[in-house]
Design a protein around this nucleic acid. Structure first.
Length: 502
RNA sequence: GGUCCUUUGGCCGAGUGGCUAGGCAAAGCUCUGCAAAAGCUUCUACAGCGGUUCGAAUCCGCUAGGGACCUCCA
């Protein structure tokens, strides 16, 4: 019953032992709010939400920190950022915080749609400029950074001489330093000529005159480099050394590698005990990303308004789709795959709804010992699977094994006393814990409206009367028209009729 | 060019030495006024070649395909 986590740093599954017993410090790289979140972004936030939920279920007190990257050179697509100071009226100018606000709100909205629990602390980069400057000063003091033309760079070569730079991402330092490989790349790096070495990265960048986001620093006006914010905020809220750091695989290098270097120099200790990296969501086998021009934004996904989508998808379908694969495996998106997840989720959730309604008699013994054992085994495995590096697909598979049993109990194909009352109660409890508490899933339909319930019951009664009178024209009219409205009637074995959203 | 990963049935996806993953789709059956839902059954795959082993989808090698990172990136 103890949790193991695959640590990207050691490339091994390791037993999870938190630094402070009973407590976990967890940091996840949050969004850059210069644009709208897409399906690819959904993976880490849902994946680590499940990690957070599971740790909480395991009785850890978790401090979950997820930043908002709101500092940098932001421009909105289709809106010119050029801002010759004073030439335009205040309101005509692009205000970077306007973008930040807009996309932060949108991100929060999406997280709510996905039923992701809010982090304990959601610090912004712009709110921690002082901490970042302090950290950079400390790195300079330690002799691992140098100032050039108002910018500050981290001295990777010096750091690599005594530290294992490149270990997390499996990089060979010599290659990075000599950087011959860069000949292959097409893009030229900004400020490259200022660096002592190509592998060095910026801690602070001097702001050009037209740059809107700028802060005063000991080195002149500028803005923080991309990597320093995470180091500064993680240190501030989780301490020099904390338990878990999560993010997408694509952040391993250079972002997380640099984070390790900065924090190690400042705090004289490795910042993170367990590094976790989720794999990418691909589309036609290719990573979803801005530069590939293949992104599906979350708003498009929820509305179905995208050429690659055949329909709209409910956030819970997306959540379920993501949980159906292991977080370290690549996950290929297609409208078809998502549609199949939608059906699967609906089936599982309906079985769960039925399970919740099953009345358990007290202290009944199992009549079907073989089935009893199977069910107990499936239920017992669920936690073991999650303990094994969060194997959510296996937990779901076990639940699907039990779905036909639940449905059969309802239809009395399996007598309720086949299973002991103890096992039935355990099944109810395990389903609730895993589906709702750990996986954070919710029913997709809003069918719990009392008035709607009453109206539906009335229609069902009328239809039943019509059927009894063999007035099938009326009964079919009710069924077919409801179906056109997206409501499905289900005639059940016992003569009752239930309904649900299609 | 370097580093690393990956290739599972019509589709999506678990699985790392021996035992049915699971889902979707499809087909048949049961139930049903018809249908849907539900239940039962069928579909038994691991890129290719070679090796290790009593035994390999699972380990090793080679070949072929795909991908990620090396550059903003979840």
């Amino acid at each position: 019953m103890s949790l193991s986590i695959y640590n990207s740093y050691t490339r091994k599954k390791e037993p999870f032992e938190s630094i402070t017993p009973g407590h976990v410090g967890m940091y996840v790289c949050g969004p850059t709010v210069s644009g709208e979140s897409h399906l690819g972004h959904a993976r880490p936030y849902i994946g680590f939400d499940v990690v957070y939920r599971y740790l909480t279920y395991k009785k850890f007190k978790v401090r979950y920190v997820r930043n908002i990257t709101d500092a940098g050179h932001f421009e909105e697509e289709g809106r010119e950022a050029e801002d010759k100071v004073g030439k335009k009226a205040q309101l005509e100018k692009l205000e970077p915080m306007e973008l930040v606000q807009k996309y932060t709100n949108l991100f929060h909205w999406a997280m709510k749609q996905f039923n992701c629990i809010e982090p304990s602390i959601e610090p912004t980069a712009t709110g921690h400029i002082v901490e970042q400057i302090n950290m950079i000063e400390e790195i300079i003091k330690q002799g691992y950074a140098y100032v050039k033309n108002g910018s500050v760079y981290f001295d990777v070569k010096k750091y690599a001489a005594t530290h294992d730079y490149g270990k997390l991402s499996g990089r060979v330092i010599d290659e990075l330093i000599n950087a011959e490989s860069r000949e292959v790349t097409t893009r030229t790096l900004e400020g490259q000529e200022e660096k002592r070495d190509a592998a060095d990265f910026a801690l602070w960048k001097a702001a050009p005159a037209e740059h809107l986001m700028r802060w005063r620093s000991p080195w002149g006006e500028g803005f923080p480099g991309w990597h320093i914010e995470c180091s500064a905020m993680a240190t501030k809220y989780l301490g020099a050394s904390f338990d878990l750091h999560g993010g997408g695989m694509d952040l391993q290098f250079p972002h997380h590698e640099s984070e390790i270097a900065q924090s190690t120099i400042c705090n004289h200790v490795a910042p993170v005990k367990y590094w976790m990296h989720n794999n990418m969501i691909t589309i036609n086998g290719r990573k979803m990303g801005k530069s590939y021009n293949n992104v599906i934004k979350l708003t498009e996904l929820f509305s179905g308004n995208h050429p690659l989508l055949t329909q709209a998808f409910h956030p819970m379908t997306v959540r379920f789709f993501i949980l159906q694969s292991h977080y370290r495996s690549p996950l290929d998106f297609s409208s078809e795959a998502l549609a199949s997840s939608e059906k699967a989720f609906k089936r599982l959730w309906e079985a769960y709804e039925i399970l919740k309604k099953i009345t358990v008699t007290e202290n009944a013994q199992a009549k079907d010992v073989e089935l009893e054992e199977k069910v107990k085994n499936w239920l017992g495995e669920m936690e073991l699977f999650m303990d094994d590096d969060f194997s959510s697909p296996k937990v779901l598979a076990n639940m699907f094994e039990m779905a036909p049993i639940i449905n059969s109990i309802k239809d009395q194909l399996i007598p309720i006393d086949a299973l002991s009352s103890k096992t039935l109660l355990l099944m109810k409890e395990r389903f609730t814990v895993f589906l709702e508490d750990v996986f954070g899933l919710q029913g997709a339909g809003g069918t719990d409206n009392n008035q709607l319930q009453s109206v539906m019951q009335l229609l069902i009664d009328i239809r039943k009367e019509a059927k009894e009178k063999k007035d099938f024209a009326t009964s079919d009219k009710i069924r077919i028209q409801l179906s056109e409205m997206g409501i499905l009637l289900k005639d059940e074995k016992d003569g009752n009729t239930s309904w649900g959203l299609a």
